[in-house]
Design a protein around this nucleic acid. Sequence first.
DNA 1: ACCTTGTTGTTATGATAACAACAACATTTA
DNA 2: TAAATGTTGTTGTTATCATAACAACAAGGT
Lengths: 263, 263
Amino acid sequence: MKAPRDVPTPLLESLKSLGLTKYEALVYIGLLRMVGATATEVHEISGVPRASVYPVLDRLVQKELVSVSHTTPKRFGAIPPDQGIENLMRRIEGDAESAQAALDAIYRERRLDNRGDQELIWTIYGEENIRTCLADMFRSAERSVELFATGDLLRRSVLSLLDSIPESVQVEFVTERWTGEQPSRFHLQVLPLAALCETPSFTERMLPYERSGVFLVDDTRALLWMEGVDGQPSALYSDSVGLALFVRRHIATIMEWAKAAVQ
Amino acid sequence: MKAPRDVPTPLLESLKSLGLTKYEALVYIGLLRMVGATATEVHEISGVPRASVYPVLDRLVQKELVSVSHTTPKRFGAIPPDQGIENLMRRIEGDAESAQAALDAIYRERRLDNRGDQELIWTIYGEENIRTCLADMFRSAERSVELFATGDLLRRSVLSLLDSIPESVQVEFVTERWTGEQPSRFHLQVLPLAALCETPSFTERMLPYERSGVFLVDDTRALLWMEGVDGQPSALYSDSVGLALFVRRHIATIMEWAKAAVQ
DNA sequence: ACCTTGTTGTTATGATAACAACAACATTTA
DNA sequence: TAAATGTTGTTGTTATCATAACAACAAGGT
């Protein structure tokens, strides 16, 4: 007869996103703590109303998370967590797979109206999404790639994508500090901005660990990588001539500025 | 201006179990079919009420499934399905991981009351669950393992588990037909029941592809593998002396019966 | 036998929250 | 002005949550 020791909310949330309801989660957790409990005992240790315990247990059996004994009264036991969660994930992964197949079919026959498409500026959220967008840009580069980014961002999120740039493309990049040797595969131009970073007007305007960058491919496609105050990365991407022009000018200015500062 | 071509229900269900609501699924699917749609166009192709489109799009952006353009009116685009589903699954897998850690901690400090535990008969649903239970039984075997199962079940679901039986344990098994050589690692005794299977009284009582089996370890733990009419496997497991005795007698009878039939 | 007592399992019913659907309004753009 | 965009609020609907009452059954005491 244990008390319905309270359950941390994040655990409940996690189990909910695996497809369980609050009661199902509470009952399953309760059963993990007592093997072979009757419905009434389940009610006691889980804190869910006794009447609700029966349908909940039925659903848990259906979901292959608990097993039942053939006694009167019935007794219930939980499948061990590793096995149980695997059972839940198997179902979800199956759904993901079939959904992906169906969505891909839909996606392939989409209409590419391009109705002024090249004038749009998109904002993309999530580091993964930004990185795949960047990878696409790099892969499709034909003449030039220019990038100006903080060293942290460059090393941790961008460097591994540079491999997808075709051999013939000229790559230039600027960063504020660079430790280690220069990547050798590209014609590249590193302009250390270390001196510039120490000026007060610079440090007061830019946070020390801010991750941001500007990327320009073939002078036509641009991506601005920024980071909100919450640390969530987001980016602007566009084929628009307006943004490309702005970024070209911006990067050119930075490079001139950097050269001047170095001297 | 496409019609809100109706969406197959199973796809909606799959996306729901990935954490989307019905509207979110419909809007995402609609956006897959038209790049750079305005809110009104999204409403038209998805069939979702125009007013509801805005909060739904907000949530989809939050979930990193769509990106927004900085124009007026705003235009929206879907992240490609592979990337989008990966984003959803990453969240879910993270939840599964943290949930597993928390549940394991709870599971380790459970009380093993064993209050008459050995007298309980458990029913287990799901092939995976049954197989892990069988594997546990085999692994903990000390003296003997006896099994009587249909050949199909044996080959497809049980054979690979036999490796976990300790070397010193004597293994006997009976099946109705056995093609191929005998597994060599065990002291085993194969009693072909092929002749018996042809008798009318046998075939009329047992379905041709029924998968079922009886397993007995150390004369104390028994598992009955059965299959419902729906093809969903389930099993009875018990330490109880009653069931063990029944199974012992059952298997002994079968073996005598088989020997007599062979002669 | 009868009646309590307590537990098991079931059913009904209201409360709540999230979502779905609709209508009305304010704002912008042409 | 007219049309389209974006916002707000209300209502209907569903699934889950929560409580109460009820019937079935066994154990035990008069």
